[in-house]
């Protein structure tokens, strides 16, 4: 519409064999570029250390996560309790450690579900176009409109209080937006010359979608993914309100934060410590995500 001269990116070599080679070297390049990005590496290191700490939590936690001292509630941070105690006199440091186990698992698994489903669904819909696209997208619209609470309640009634349900329920809500984003991206990609060229070469659709379209949508997907993880971690607190998820007295960062809000004015440390841990994790995930995105973007390489 305006006078922008749209110069399409250099088409990739359309030959099947060469495309394969190009894509494998793409991953190599990506790895090389990632290892040069200091912030991304720092992020990755932090996540790895955190994951390790979560694994060994039961052996290093100074107290039991359920261990109460009713006469020592809402205590300030001290040598005995590094991060203070909560409203039942439980050690917050211990609870934040245990909460991390739950939250990291929830965030990562639920996001994986949403990525796998969302990317495939969105890519298929966007690539197929036409009737298939509008049917698939209307299905997404319908799912958006279904009241989430009822879905969760009914899931629980028919499948019991299963931890797997938690990931399904969280993934279920998050993949919808992911699918829309990927679809939008794919629609704009598929008119590009390299895809058109691949189509005219007779390369199978499945191959085009998986090898060309999906990798090229990774940028926005990773960005959105770094947004999905915290939203899944926080939604877990809401699901536990509905009775799905970890049961008290086990904690998660989401439930720790929501109970911290209640005492924000009288004992701010109860809120601050889980919030800081969640933020640090997300900082790391973000730097890692941005690094990955830049690394996976063949165009960004020469910048």
């Amino acid at each position: 519409m305006s006078s922008i001269a749209i110069t399409m990116p250099t088409p990739e070599n359309p030959a099947l064999a060469l495309a394969q080679e190009a894509s494998s070297s793409l991953w190599m390049d990506a790895y090389r570029r990632l290892s040069k990005n200091k912030m991304a590496l720092a992020g990755a290191t932090f996540i790895l250390i955190e994951a390790f700490i979560c694994l060994i939590t039961p052996w290093i936690a100074p107290y039991g996560f359920e261990q109460q001292n009713l006469e020592f509630t809402l205590a300030r941070p001290s040598f005995a309790h590094w991060l203070g105690t909560d409203t039942l006199g439980r050690d917050l440091f211990t609870r934040v450690l245990y909460g991390g186990r739950v939250s990291l698992m929830v965030g990562i698994l639920a996001s994986l579900v949403s990525v796998v489903v969302g990317v495939i669904y969105g890519a298929v819909s966007g690539y197929a176009g036409g009737k298939i696209d509008s049917v698939l997208m209307r299905v997404v619209d319908i799912l958006y409109a279904l009241p989430f609470i009822f879905l969760v309640i009914i899931l629980m009634v028919y499948f019991g209080r299963n931890i797997v349900l938690l990931f399904v329920a969280l993934g279920l809500t998050e993949w919808l937006t992911m699918a829309r984003i990927v679809r939008g991206q794919v629609i704009s990609l598929k008119q590009k010359e390299f895809i058109e060229a691949a189509v005219s070469m007779g390369i199978p659709t499945r191959f085009i979608v998986l090898r060309h379209l999906v990798p090229n949508t990774l940028g926005p997907v990773i960005v959105y993914l770094t947004l999905t993880i915290p939203s899944a971690i926080l939604s877990e607190a809401f699901l536990s309100f509905l009775g799905l998820g970890v049961q008290a007295p086990m904690a998660s960062w989401g439930t720790l934060i929501s109970s911290g809000v209640e005492v924000m004015e009288v004992a701010p440390w109860v809120l601050i410590s889980p919030a800081i841990m969640l933020s640090l994790t997300l900082f790391s995930l973000n730097f890692l995500g941005d690094g990955l995105r830049d690394a996976l973007d063949p165009k960004g390489a020469k910048d």
Partner: peptide, 19 residues
């Protein structure tokens, strides 16, 4: 949560919570 802890430590009874 408080009852769970009390019954556990006073009587050795295991309690599970669900909401």
């Amino acid at each position: 949560e408080a009852l769970q802890e009390m019954w556990k430590s006073n009587l050795g009874v295991e309690i599970k919570l669900f909401n």
